[in-house]
Amino acid sequence: MSDNTLPIEALARAGEVLQRLKRSVAQAFLGQDRVVEEVIAALLGGGHVLIEGVPGLGKTLLVQALARASGGRYSRVQFTPDIMPADVTGHTLYDPSNGQFTTRKGPVFANFVLADEVNRAPAKTQAALLEVMQESQVTLDGAAHKLDPPFMVLATQNPIEQEGTYALPEAQLDRFLLKVVIDYPAESEELSVLRFATEKRSADRLNIDKVMPVLNPETLAKLQAITASVRVDPAVEAYVLRLVRQTRDFAGIGSGASTRGAIALIRCARSLALLAGRDFVTPDDIKRLAPSALRHRISPVADLVIEGRTADMLIAELLEKIEAPRL
């Protein structure tokens, strides 16, 4: 990476576009600025996101708004215990009328795929989806179909209904760049959500028509390229490594994060810096993203789980203890 060569005007334009994108998405997804920022960070980082939150917090809406604002195609798959891999990827059919095989492409052939309640699907369907996520291509009946960039999967899972569901295996969780947790919005924000929802009077859904397209796939590709050239100081890199390595020998964490975690953290921190109009990453960006980038990559030991300590608490503890960069 050529250091510090990002032209000022390019940076300014990128920052501006991103702000517009953020505002645009946030319009439909009130009161969750942090979530919006993180999802955009993952988008720029070219990765997939796992979203966790109880029903009714507008996960679907977020993805719709994001797709609309980035000018991509959107599709949604509701995962159920009886869903088959073919329902996700597509399949070939024999058409008796013309004696030919036709390929029916599944919902993954889109730019933004919302995989709703991914943990309710059996393992083989999850595996099919994750394979697509990793390779960005689908093999149907021996023929490989490349997916058009951008390709982003936003999988949601419901923390309450974990029981009786198929939890994603740890190795597969690792494929998600970020795991974003949607919490209930603050009271004032919840009020505005309520108002927004009731004023529109459009049945029971929030209106996303307000969301204006801000990007097109080409711009997005450019933005992603710019993101990749955001400067990361060696001191910041060292900080990230310290964090990730520490998750492996921190008392209380059963299995720590892989190197993939460190990479994810840096990739998303770059986007966050760009979103803030900076062309360099600060330790603050790292700190801010660490929970989302690491929470699904570590698992607390059984004792702590029984005590009710969560991965988030451990990460917070870790962030307090690990020294921020020294110079």
Binding site: T282, D284, L319, E320, K321, I322, A324
Partner: peptide
């Protein structure tokens, strides 16, 4: 200030 505090903190 804790050990892990950044400039933003």
């Amino acid at each position: 200030i804790s050990k892990g505090a950044t400039e933003g903190d």
